[in-house]
């Protein structure tokens, strides 16, 4: 009986463990602190939106969580441990400006799978799936850099998702896209989420936030001003910073 209780507790502990965790993460550049000791956990299967005014540290936080930047203080943990090569492979990121290799659409997708370690034969089928998913089959042989902004971003999302990450970071992926392209990107991301991919996305778009988010981390001046369910942070924000932002007001005070 005692063993059973302990097993249940152990399972609960495992279930409660965040996929990704920031512990006191701070970041400074040129002697100036930009991110101040952030503590947060990203739970599996959630769609977490990182929001805040320009310069609040959203993109910086995303890069710190993904491991593109090394924190000046604190640490980021992946499934409770320091991230290793496996952790990097279990994550993917889509940037605001998609980075296209100077290769064809097909070669861009192949490259991602190749560096992911997938054998050549298996790659072809996966690449075709990604092309279909991004509706880019007709453009497979085109140079990726001549695609439109929306097509490039769809390719970037498909390239990130084809490696089947557990966690997908998106840094304002639709900020320069028209509504139709935005819709396609959202569909791709939501389909991935339905398959179990955890989403962490930076967005400024309130409409998109309502369509895409489960919860919001609201940043102000490099600190978490507020975190909570989407409807609460956007509907009845507790922090003055979030309240001002949702009302379109400039807020320059401290977050706490």
């Amino acid at each position: 009986m005692r063993d059973t209780v302990m097993d249940i507790r152990a399972e609960s502990a495992v279930a409660a463990q965040p996929l990704l965790e920031a512990r006191g993460v701070g970041f400074s550049a040129g002697g100036q602190p930009l991110i101040h000791g952030i503590d947060l956990g990203i739970e599996p299967g959630r769609r977490t939106l990182v929001m805040g005014a320009n310069g609040s540290g959203k993109s910086l936080l995303l890069r710190l969580l993904h491991g593109l930047l090394t924190p000046s203080s604190g640490q980021v943990l992946w499934r409770g441990h320091a991230p290793d090569r496996g952790a990097r492979r279990a994550q993917a990121m889509v940037f605001q400006r998609p980075v296209m290799l100077r290769r064809s659409v097909l070669a861009n997708l192949n490259f991602a799978l190749k560096v992911h370690g997938m054998a050549g034969r298996a790659r072809a089928a996966r690449v075709q799936e990604a092309l279909d998913m991004a509706r880019l089959s007709d453009l497979a042989s085109h140079p990726a850099r001549v695609l439109s902004g929306g097509e490039q971003q769809r390719l970037a999302v498909a390239r990130a998702l084809m490696c089947e990450p557990d966690l997908l970071f998106l840094d304002e992926p639709t900020s320069s896209l028209d509504p139709a392209s935005t819709q396609m990107i959202e569909d791709l991301v939501n389909a991935a989420h339905a398959r179990g991919v955890t989403i962490v996305m930076v967005t400024h778009d309130l409409g998109q936030a309502r369509r895409m988010g489960d919860e919001v981390i609201f940043l102000h001046a490099g600190r978490v001003a507020e975190r909570g369910p989407l409807h609460q942070v956007l509907g009845a924000p507790r922090s003055e910073a979030a309240r001002a932002w949702t009302q379109g007001r400039l807020y320059t005070g401290t977050p706490h």
Binding site: H66, M93, R102, R103, F111, A112, V115
Partner: peptide, 25 residues
């Protein structure tokens, strides 16, 4: 400068990074 973040996100090894850069350039 253009590729660095994407390559870091891919988790590319140093050798693969050099090879990819030389090929694309």
């Amino acid at each position: 400068g253009e590729y660095a973040e994407q390559f870091a996100s891919f988790g590319l090894t140093a050798r693969a990074r050099v090879a990819a850069l030389l090929w694309d350039a």
